[in-house]
Design a protein around this nucleic acid. Structure first.
Lengths: 343, 343
DNA sequence: GACTTGAGTACGAATATAACC
DNA sequence: AGGTTATATTCGTACTCAAGT
């Protein structure tokens, strides 16, 4: 880094501050780490000199002594998918609030080799812990291995804590129950489901929740339709399948907003109006959901809360104490794609 | 981090390795940093002990001495927009290839205060340099201030190097010229443009390139249509505007793929077929572009190359030497949305 | 004896200098 | 002398122990 040379003036150290303030470096250290043990007089003097000199703690030296770098590693597999991307940002923000920096690594595959390399990379950079965001089982398995060498929290929605692993995420089953129950409360008796790719924990959880809500209401579940992906196109195709049934459902709970979008498009092409003829609920609450036509009733995932929960698990005393995963409750957002109950 | 205690066995240091191998720690250091100066015999012995003990360099101690942490800070504003998101991943990957870790920070706004805080955060974590990804002017201005305190590279598409700032990005004008020229070569005389939000450098660059290509072919430019965003919905609305013209254009170059998607949808609703009646070219080459109907001819942005270029600027000797920004050339991807030339 | 401050050393790697064969 | 290896010190912070008021 050649330009460095231009900047290569040694930044002021504690010793510099101490000299300038006429105290020992130890006193400067105390001003930072235990201010109450320093007389207000000296403290003010030292603090003033710090400001004058533009003193900044050297985190490398600090890390060397304390054995903690303040660096959190984040491993994510999904790159541009909505959930993982939002979760990554949420974790970054939560970490920054607590003064931690996050080092992000996006892996293309979850092979043992890739994970091993990533771990090695993180360890050699002295991270304090790792958050693994994984919507699929493969990375989760690999993450279990990691936990032998460094604290690890898994962010997912379908894994139960085991082998001392800490898990945080969003309660997909609950979200799906809420979505389905909302449709049932609106008076619908036949509620279909378009599921996401079943290798995702999220997709599986939403299926379970859908079935639970139907069972509670003592309604039978129509056949489940598995979409090939999370896109509007997949939703469009899944809709074709539903429309080929002898009897159309009253309502459809789609596993995410884009699937719902494709579904709505397909329904309208057949002259079916949403919500007049058929009600639809999505999942995620993507930015555009309020601008669909009709505006989509959906389930909002509290990524920020989940990110914060993951970080607390990683950093806090509560570590290893929880026997139940930290699954945050998502909320239903009512808009215009569900027909109000008629009575 | 409570669980830490479970792991709190001090990792082996050079001294441990040295003791075990019966040499001095200095020799161990040489094995790592200048192997050729150590006799093959001792070297092998030391290396074996390193493996046995699972020795790993302590990057904190190393950073303390060398004044380099191997950490690169990345500041990005756009969170889920296609370009910035892809660029972030590209930079992360390029950095990792070179052994650097990237600390990501996504800022919500580009106020002086936010940027100041972020810089402070990065500096206190000892980053070696910063990459600022900015599609809009505000962050770019703020980035100029940063460069006084640490090496900075700006990743963008509309800023010329100034004040010793290093800039890398993708040549938007060239991409737009290629897209437009492709339409002209196909025999189209009237090529309209749906522009993205004009506060984005990318949007502006694409407008300039579009005009340039038309000028070279001595064709006049239809009025430019500015879409309110980058979404399909914006494209759909922009299309309404175009269709209100007395005379329809032969072809439309849309500033990104989603705008193109909305445009195509609007055209087809009017009974206009793409490409039979009107040709369309997009920009970005998003994952789904090949699955649009018709498959979209578009311009692929080489994010990986640009990310690598940014990193090289930040790390390499070439620093400050380039008077011209490192703008990488995007490529046209021909698919099915442009009518082949008829002669 | 409270309260405040200082001296000295450890953390682990890098390196200049010195010593060895 | 030339090829290797060893000794001693440095980086900046944290913390123990001791000393001063």
């Amino acid at each position: 880094m050649a330009r460095r040379s231009r900047l290569q003036v040694r930044p002021p150290s504690m010793v510099d501050v101490a000299k300038q303030a006429g105290v020992s470096h130890q006193t400067v250290s105390r001003v930072l780490n235990a201010p109450e043990t320093v007389s207000p007089d000296t403290r003010r003097r030292v603090e003033r000199v710090m400001r004058e000199l533009g003193y900044r703690r050297n985190s490398q030296a600090r890390a060397l002594k304390t054995r903690s770098t303040g660096l959190i590693g984040v491993i994510s597999q999904g790159d541009t998918d909505f959930g993982p991307a939002r979760m990554t940002l949420a974790i970054e923000e939560a970490a920054r609030e607590r003064g931690y920096a996050t080092a992000l690594t996006v892996v293309r595959d979850a092979s043992a080799d890739t994970v091993e390399k990533t771990l090695d990379f993180f360890l050699s950079h002295g991270i304090d812990g790792i958050v693994v965001i994984t919507p699929v089982p493969a990375l989760a398995e690999a993450a279990k291995q990691l936990s032998k060498k460094t604290p690890v929290v898994i962010v997912t929605s379908g894994l139960w804590p085991a082998d001392n692993m800490d898990v945080a995420g969003i309660d997909q089953e609950l979200g799906a129950r809420r979505a389905t129950a909302h449709l049932i409360e609106a008076g619908h008796r036949s509620v279909a489901h378009i599921a996401g790719p079943m290798d995702w924990f999220d997709a599986r959880g939403r299926v379970v929740g859908w079935r639970q809500a139907l069972a509670v209401a003592e309604l039978s579940a129509p056949p489940m339709v598995e979409a090939g992906g999370w896109t509007a196109e997949s939703g469009y195709r899944a809709a074709q399948q539903i429309m080929s049934w002898g009897q159309l459902p009253d309502a459809v709970f789609a596993a995410n907003d884009f699937l719902a979008l494709g579904l709505i498009r397909a329904l309208e092409e057949r002259g079916l109006r949403v919500p007049a003829d058929i009600s639809v609920v999505g999942f995620d609450d993507v930015d555009a959901a309020g601008y669909f036509s009709p505006p989509l009733t959906t389930v909002r995932q509290p990524f920020e809360d989940a990110g914060r929960a993951a970080l607390e698990l990683l950093l806090d005393e509560s570590h290893g104490l929880t026997q139940v995963p930290n699954f945050i409750a998502p909320e239903l957002v009512e808009r215009g794609s569900v027909r109000p109950a008629q009575r």
